[in-house]
Amino acid sequence: VLKALERTRQLDIPDEKTMPVLMKLLEEAGGNWSYIKLDNYTALVDAIYSVED
């Protein structure tokens, strides 16, 4: 979780936006981090930006 938060902080995305999206992605992935961690957490960042749209 810390590495995911560090990555999104680099992009000026607050933890308050990151955590709900991260928890949803983890739930959808059955707790499997490998998809979320791919390409420096690209799936997480993309999911956060899609929620903002």
Rank of each mutant, 00 (worst) to 15 (best):
D15K: 02
M19T: 05
T18E: 02
Y41V: 01
E28H: 09
D39R: 10
L44S: 01
K17C: 10
P20E: 11
L11Y: 06
E28I: 12
I13V: 06
I36M: 04
A4K: 03
L44D: 02
E16W: 15
V21S: 04
I36N: 01
D39M: 08
A43H: 09
D53Y: 14
L22M: 04
M19W: 11
I13K: 01
V45R: 04
K3G: 13
L11H: 06
D39A: 09
V45Y: 02
Y41H: 01
E6N: 08
T42A: 15
L26K: 00
D46G: 08
A29E: 08
L2I: 13
G30P: 03
E16L: 07
L26Q: 02
E52V: 12
D12T: 07
K37P: 06
L26H: 00
L11T: 02
V45I: 15
E28L: 11
Q10W: 08
D39S: 08
K24E: 04
M19A: 02
V45P: 01
K24D: 05
P20V: 12
G30I: 06
Y41E: 00
E28C: 10
A47E: 06
S50V: 09
Q10L: 12
D15H: 04
G30L: 09
L25K: 02
R7L: 08
Y35P: 08
E52Y: 14
R7W: 10
A43Y: 10
Y35M: 13
L2F: 09
R7N: 03
E6W: 07
L44W: 03
N32S: 11
Y49V: 09
S50H: 11
R9N: 04
E16M: 08
Y41D: 01
R7S: 05
E16D: 11
K24C: 07
P14E: 07
D39K: 09
G30N: 13
M23P: 00
E6H: 09
T18F: 04
A47H: 06
L2P: 08
W33H: 02
V45G: 01
D46T: 14
E27L: 11
M19Q: 03
E52M: 14
E27S: 11
K37S: 15
K3V: 07
K24M: 10
V51G: 12
L11E: 07
D12M: 14
N40T: 03
D39H: 10
N32R: 08
L2T: 13
M23L: 13
L22S: 00
V1L: 14
Y41P: 00
K3L: 13
L26G: 00
